[in-house]
Amino acid sequence: MSDKPRSFQEIILRLQSYWAAKGCAILQPYDIEVGAGTFHPATTLRALGSKPWAAAYVQPSRRPTDGRYGENPNRLQHYYQYQVLIKPSPPDLQELYLGSLAAIGIDAHLHDIRFVEDDWESPTLGAWGLGWEVWCDGMEVSQFTYFQQVGGHDCRPVSGELTYGLERLAMYVLGVDHVMDMPFNDPDAPIALRYGDIFCQTEQEYARWNFDVADTDMLLQHFKDAEAECHRILSTPAHDPKKDMAIIMAHPAYDQCIKASHLFNLLDARGVISVTERQAYIGRVRALAKACADAFMQTEAAGASA
């Protein structure tokens, strides 16, 4: 590997190798649409309970309202986050993080890297933490958070969470001004692909669907269905008569919670949610997240004794 990465994927690969070398389990993206890497159960649920955890992964993230038909140099309705969660947060997490920047070619002796106050709060997840946004030469390149609460539960021990906005970070490292111009694979490869070759058309298609075409009645119905199914799963008795053992279905319930959250985002992009209704919807999703967190806390993965 040369000192400077040459493509988007090389930056991802270097982050993967770096965090693998630091002992993280390299997970794959979660297979349900989410708004941010935090929603992956490897973060939301695993930040709960007493068991140690260390995971890193790329998470495709969807924010329908940010769609700009591929025209805006920085905004996308579908983008990638790189997410690291380590529990308990190690004492040298800042150093580890700075090491990851060095791994992707950001030399701390040439740049101005700063930890600027940014308290993180997710009203939909009932979660909050304290930390910083990390600035490199005045640009926000990551979020750095010590989780204090998730789903209404105090985090004990505390997890350290790192979130890298991959496109923005990569554009900076690669010196690209428009996201669609960014080399995705090696620019000298026989078939060199730019970010736009892969995502420009999809940005247009999704922007149109998100803003103008998505069937709002259907979305609303799906929201209600996901909400109902989540509650139904969680109200099912823990005892499985077939296996004659307790199986709490925290993850299947949480899937429905994520779905409801994304459906809310889609409805929001369609402009059918008024300001007053907004809070009510967020409250409904938070209630699901909290119920899932309650259920997860009863499971072995959270350190509960069987």
Binding site: P91, Y146, Q148
Partner: peptide, 12 residues
């Protein structure tokens, strides 16, 4: 905030 496994609270 708290951090790691400790119970002490400080700003960071």
């Amino acid at each position: 905030m708290r951090w790691g496994t400790g119970a002490l609270k400080w700003v960071r």
